[in-house]
Simulated assay, not measured.
Amino acid sequence: MEQIASALGDGARWRIVELLAERPRSVGELAELTGLRQPQTTKHLQTLARAGLVTVFPLGQRRVYAVEAAPLHDLEHRVRGLIELIEAHADERDVVARYRAAIETESALADQDRWADGRTFTFERVLGTPPEVLWRYWVDPDLLATWWAPPSMTVTDCVLEPTPGGRAVLEFRDAERRYRSEGRVNAAQEPEHLEFDLSVLDPAGAVAFTGRYDLTLTSVPEGTRLHLDLSITETTVEAVPAIAGIETGWGQVLDNLADAVGTEKETS
């Protein structure tokens, strides 16, 4: 397939294939129609032949080239599959576009430290599982690691110790670097309430900003209503990318949580 794509990647060869799609032609006719010299045309035809795109056969004293449709059907199938994959994951590109727009917006505001102090965010979901089960997904490190990172990130360390003064840690990585946050649990009432602070650290280990989280799990007929309030403080100018990603990032990790809880429900 790579050989076919490479052969068709040249404009002159693509034109030759177009001409042969109409009917078989000789080297001389192709050279005249493309404006190429005959030796150049012959080399292009040889490349197309090696890729299986054209065949040559004698016609009296002439050698005539004809296009082969089968490799093009294979290419069409691969391209169609690629298009379907792109369309199926269009939301991922939308996430990147929204994140880029958010960075541009926040960059215009971040003219000094503390620029975003006091900003608040609220997230709410109804999940089809009891509060006791959902609580475990927040305080059990193994379960927490299954969802507490955006797509394409891998959790390397995470803990929310459900007791006042307990540790709060989140570290995840991608192919380029690690991202670490540290803090403390302020209040915990199993299985319905958890408050904690989490400071996002820059690569040097300094605080970029601190998030104060207030999580409430309420039993409802459908399962559990999850309500999460987040306020930020200690914001630095360098925190722009992280703050720009809060809305999208938490939306993604709560989707992960819903998937993780749903998987447990299916297998239990």
Rank of each mutant, 00 (worst) to 15 (best):
D140T: 09
Q61V: 14
V79A: 14
R225M: 08
P58I: 07
G245T: 08
A97N: 12
S199H: 10
K265E: 15
R93P: 05
N186L: 15
P130R: 00
P151C: 04
E132K: 10
Q38E: 15
V133T: 15
K43P: 10
V240K: 07
D255H: 06
R212W: 10
R23S: 03
L230H: 05
Q38W: 12
T224L: 07
L201G: 04
E195I: 09
R184Y: 12
I86K: 13
H73S: 13
I16K: 00
E190S: 15
S219M: 07
T156D: 03
K265A: 15
T105K: 14
T248W: 11
D113C: 00
V207R: 01
L198S: 03
A258R: 07
D202A: 03
V237M: 08
E266R: 15
R15V: 09
E22T: 06
V17W: 00
G249E: 03
T122D: 15
T156I: 03
G52Y: 02
R37V: 14
T224N: 02
I246T: 02
R13W: 01
P203S: 09
P24Y: 07
Y65W: 01
A90Q: 13
W147L: 01
R62W: 11
H77N: 14
L36C: 05
I246L: 05
G35S: 12
E195N: 13
T42A: 14
F123M: 03
R23T: 09
Q46F: 13
A116H: 01
D117F: 04
L134I: 11
R225T: 08
E176D: 14
L194W: 02
V237K: 03
A258N: 07
E234I: 08
R212F: 11
D113F: 03
R180Y: 02
H73E: 15
W138E: 07
V253P: 01
H89D: 11
P71R: 05
L198R: 02
R125T: 08
E238H: 08
D94P: 10
D113R: 01
R62F: 11
L217V: 09
T156F: 02
L226F: 06
E87V: 07
R23L: 06
P191V: 10
L75G: 05
P203A: 00
G165H: 04
G223W: 03
R177H: 08
L127S: 04
E234T: 07
R50T: 15
D197S: 11
A208D: 11
V207N: 06
G251T: 02
L228H: 02
Q46Y: 13
G11W: 12
E18Y: 08
E76W: 14
T42I: 12
L20Q: 04
Q61M: 14
A239T: 07
T154W: 00
E32M: 10
D157T: 05
V207L: 06
P24V: 02
E104V: 14
I232G: 09
L217I: 00
G183W: 01
L8K: 00
Y65A: 09
S152R: 13
I243W: 10
M1S: 11
A12C: 11
